[in-house]
């Protein structure tokens, strides 16, 4: 059975729109007109997992997390 993939999950209450995540992971995250991140849905592909993890740990509000989606 395929292991459930890793996804980026944002806590929109904690997020203040610093935008660090979009700089570190432009492949998956862009900013809306107000500077809040829009995350492309779906599993993070293997080559991007390290970058995604770095984006999550760099969030000054700890609003971004890389989690294994519940099956």
């Amino acid at each position: 059975m395929k292991r459930p993939g890793l996804v980026l999950m944002i806590n929109p209450i904690a997020c203040d729109g610093h935008g660090v995540c979009a700089e570190l992971l432009p492949e998956r995250i862009r900013l809306d007109p107000w500077g809040f991140p829009v995350i492309e849905s779906g599993d993070i592909p293997a080559p991007l997992v390290d970058h995604a993890r770095r984006a999550a740990t760099s969030c000054p509000r700890l609003a971004l997390s890389l989690v294994r989606q519940d099956p």
Binding site: P12, I13, D32, W34, G35, F36
Partner: peptide
């Protein structure tokens, strides 16, 4: 008034 996208 908690989430940026909703507020804006």
């Amino acid at each position: 008034g908690q989430c940026g996208p909703c507020v804006n």
